[in-house]
């Protein structure tokens, strides 16, 4: 048994849920979290992202948009993400990881999220008391 913890973009939640169902795993727990990733050292990449983000809504020039975008990119601000926790059998791990990667990858090069695979000792279904692989 493994626990897959995947941190994904908020607007990819629907796609991720659908991908999980398609991969044969319907059960998961999702939590709204705040987070930040590795500091991006590549200045040109940051410059490019900043330009795209600022161009998203050119009519909105108030409310410190530029400051906010800068803080997003230099890492002083945490941004919202959805964290999925999925319990799977050992042999399904790579399939699920692949499915999550496929639907969550974007053209932005950064910020698509991370997937962690953790060992888990036991799982118990409350309704029947089954434990181990039978409980998943």
């Amino acid at each position: 048994m493994k626990e897959i913890v995947a941190v994904v973009r908020m607007n990819k939640v629907g796609a991720t849920k659908k991908a999980l169902v398609d991969a044969g795993i319907a059960g998961f727990t999702a939590v709204k979290v705040m987070g930040r990733g590795k500091l991006v050292k590549d200045a040109s990449l940051i410059e490019e992202r900043k330009k795209t983000l600022l161009a998203l809504n050119p009519h909105n020039t108030s409310c410190g948009k530029e400051k906010m975008v800068t803080e997003f990119l230099d890492g002083t601000r945490l941004f919202p993400r959805r964290m999925f926790t999925i319990l799977v059998h050992d042999d399904e791990v790579s399939k699920i990881v692949e499915a999550i990667i496929q639907v969550n990858r974007t053209e932005n090069k950064v910020g698509d999220g991370k997937i962690f695979v953790l060992p888990i000792m036991d799982a118990i279904r409350v309704r029947t008391g089954e434990s181990g692989d039978a409980a998943l």
């Binding site: 493994k2 994904v8 791990v93 990881v97 999550i100 990667i101 969550n104 990858r105 974007t106 932005n108 090069k109 950064v110 910020g111 698509d112 999220g113 991370k114 997937i115 962690f116 695979v117 953790l118 060992p119």
Partner: peptide, 13 residues
């Protein structure tokens, strides 16, 4: 503290 088996980065794979 717990162990992690694998880490995948979505953007780069």
């Amino acid at each position: 503290v717990s162990s992690i088996d694998e880490v995948h980065t979505v953007s780069s794979g």
